[in-house]
Design a protein around this nucleic acid. Structure first.
Lengths: 154, 154
DNA sequence: TAAGATTGATAAGTCAATCTTC
DNA sequence: GAAGATTGACTTATCAATCTTA
């Protein structure tokens, strides 16, 4: 959404190497991220997954016991109502099931099905292939530099 | 969606400086981009805009005449049906209006309203402030490095 | 009252199918 | 038949309001 969102003709913005670089950084950041995410989503779609679904499954594999929907919302950095609907769809997919929390009757927990466990492993393997490929383009120094720059950008 | 989507305990993935860096790059890319976009969306929301709406308005300002919805879809890198609905909402907002194309009766063009023009200027100014701020964190060298690395990532 | 989950409305995106016009 | 736009179904996100339980 950033590309060419401004015109470059304002005189006071034409200081060389100055302000137009701000836009270029934002544009490139957006483009590179979108391209990578598209690639990840396309790969995961081949096993019936998406990034949010894989994140939920991975959290469940890690915890080895049912997890509250609120905790999943924290993990996905999204709002609770989003998780409610995501778990709805994942239950239809047969990847998870809702179980009640004996200790707190307000809570609902998501539990992994065996199909969910298998699918998670497949999804993670696909992610690894992509990461290996992305990584291969850079030297160790470049990777460190990129990480440092991205962290400073925030 | 990338954060901690894998566990780090597989022995053959623990080569130092190797595979776990691929995930870190993807995670950081995702995080930095999301943070920036959130900031942009929050700023634009104060003038009743969003990134896609500002992109449409900017294209219309640049062309100085009505633009077909198909061309806008190309500009936004999205599918035509998305633009149909976006223009629906922008017409309700009073930012654009649909006009018919005299030369091709299949086509519909979006035309800027005076309110749309004013809003575009306000949105661009907000974007400039953010870019100036992001830019200020880096030296000229760092900006060039970051751009180069992002371009290579794709 | 506050916390956990759900529901309903909305925004932005996808795809598949359809309609009109070239 | 192919191109431009629309419609409908769906995914992922938000927010505001509500309901139950702590």
């Amino acid at each position: 959404m950033y590309s060419s969102d401004m015109n470059d003709t304002e005189p006071d913005e034409m200081v060389p190497g100055s302000l137009c670089e701000g836009r270029r950084i934002m544009t490139e950041l957006h483009r590179a991220t979108a391209a990578l995410e598209q690639r990840v989503e396309a790969a995961l779609a081949t096993v019936g997954l998406s990034s949010p679904k894989l994140s939920v499954l991975t959290r469940l594999v890690e915890s080895r016991e049912p997890v509250t929907l609120g905790e999943l919302a924290g993990r996905l950095c999204c709002v609770r109502s989003n998780v409610t609907q995501l778990i709805d769809r994942m239950e239809v997919d047969g990847l998870v099931r809702r179980v009640s929390d004996p200790g707190d009757r307000r809570s609902v927990r998501a539990e992994l099905t065996s199909m969910g466990r298998q699918r998670q492993a497949a999804g993670i393997e696909l992610l690894r292939v992509i990461e290996r490929d992305v990584l291969g383009k850079f030297s160790t120094d470049d990777r460190q530099r990129l990480l440092g720059l991205l962290e400073g950008l925030c």
